[in-house]
Amino acid sequence: MKKLLKSNELVLVGIILILWVAFGLVNPNILSISNVFSITRASIVTATFALAAMLVMIVGGVDISFLAIGSFAMYVVVKYFVEMQLLGASMAVIFLAAIAVGIVLHLINWFFIDRLSLPIFIVTVGTQSLYKGYLLAFVGTSYITRLPDSLRALATRYVASVTDQNGITYNLHILVLVVAVMYVLVHLLLTYTTLGRHAYAIGADATAAKRAGINISKTRFLIFVIAGAIAGIAGMFHGTLNRTAVPADIVGGELAVIAAVFLGGGASKRARGSVLGTALGVFLLALISNNLILLGIPSYWQQAVTGTIIIIGIVLQSLRGATQLGKKGASS
């Protein structure tokens, strides 16, 4: 834990605290627990997708296709259960189906990346359009508003609620806890399994990893399976919370998710992709956009502010990285 909190994560916590206090001075409501509830709820989907994007970043590339994969998995599965009149299907079955679709789609990426030695970014730029196009062309374009019952129930399952002085109730959504558990699991996977450590090794230097006897294909395969599964789950979360299955509505928002991962240390040489950092990155971006809405700031300003924070975060990381590079250059 001590190791984790070093450097980047600490900076993020600092930025979050400063922003929080600053926002709170303008609007004391922001400091309330209800605001925390709404920020976390707004982050559920982003946070889950961020986990999928982060895993791929750890093995050395930027994935652009995770939203397309999540959308595809969610829409195809919901459509299937609805059209087959399986509205009473259990939640576990529906989610497992989405996970399976997510895995298959991500393994197609893996095939191009591993077997044909293509860069992750290039492959996923291609498959992103491919998946989105296939979804719209062959699966359907209509909105499905009648979701299976288990998903409808899940959409309003809360674990805690607070009522503010105006009588408005804020709820802590159960998926917030689910996401938290997923983060912990991925953290354990990355920190305490050989698979996780090998993933970091490959991302740092694939040649060195090969020389150290690491099986690159196998490690990447497993990481893509996990990332595909998480993307499928994230897609289901999105459909569930929206209470409507819309095909490919989120595709195009990849950069905001990737920005959160970058902020969380994905761009730094040292800790490329950290679970805690990613969580903080997601939270920071949600904090900013949520509170700017509360302050009534126009949305183009929100984008500008978000962009500025991302740039600052990444510059801070690369400044640390740059000094290391400098050292390296001087001695060689």
Partner: peptide, 30 residues
């Protein structure tokens, strides 16, 4: 020991030293 050392910059000294060990011993957990 290759000219470029083939170490992993994003990992600690301890982990780098024991990295090959983890692969040759086929360990699952760290």
């Amino acid at each position: 020991i290759y000219q470029d050392f083939a170490l992993f910059p994003n990992m600690t000294v301890a982990e780098n030293i024991m990295m090959i060990d983890s692969t040759t011993q086929n360990r699952r957990l760290v």
